[in-house]
Amino acid sequence: MAGRRALKAVLIDLSGTLHIEDTAVPGAQDALNRLRQAPVAVKFVTNTTKESKRSLLERLQRLNFNLQENEIFTSLSAARSLLEEKQQRPLLLVEDSALEDFTGINTSEPNAVVIGLAPEHFNYQTLNKAFRMILDGASFIAIHKSRYYKRRDGLALGPGPFVAGLEYATDCKATVVGKPEKTFFTQALSDLGCSPSHAVMIGDDARDDVGGAQNAGMLGILVRTGKYRDGDEDKITPPPHLTCNSFPDAVEHILQNLRGRH
């Protein structure tokens, strides 16, 4: 890392990295507090699209994590910005709990399809409706395209497979706004006034967290919690900057090796 300037920001994934559903990763709260004592900005970036920022915040605070709502940047925020910019009226295939992040957006006579993680909408009838709209020219926005995520009862399909299926059906590429898109990471860093070369990303998803961040010019640290499966670090090129057991080890590495390095 010769020539690399001092680390200024750490982006941290939530689900699978800090917690799995309602259980914190052991030692993660203390590790976050240690990280906050270092002179680096911290931001929480997530593709957990089934929850609004407020409900994410409440869950993390219940688990005794120390953070503020304005430190959270989600793929829902990124989707909302895109709809506002293009002045589109979406059919929102997101869980009810995520709808509050779209408050004020006009959804009558929709001319766009927005797909998040919404198992109760991923039935045959609703997907057919989305399919027909896209075929008739509606724009197609995917909040993210992750393959699967970890639940207490095991792995479960993410929105990615349904987006890939609709892309095949319609011969249209979705505009993806969440991780691993480069613009997602640069948007997350922009209000910190930090360029990607001064930032590191910690996450459990080799492609979406680590690969995406590294593609945007950041360093990526992969943790072996959440959805991590053996050999995931070999699925991306270049490989992760570091692969470690869990979030506290990642923080330790940052404090020992990256902080204030010139």
Binding site: Y148, L157, P161, A164, G165, Y168, A169
Partner: peptide, 10 residues
């Protein structure tokens, strides 16, 4: 085919 692609991708 749509669901085949979904499982292929997953």
């Amino acid at each position: 085919g749509v669901y085949m692609k979904a499982l292929e991708y997953a």
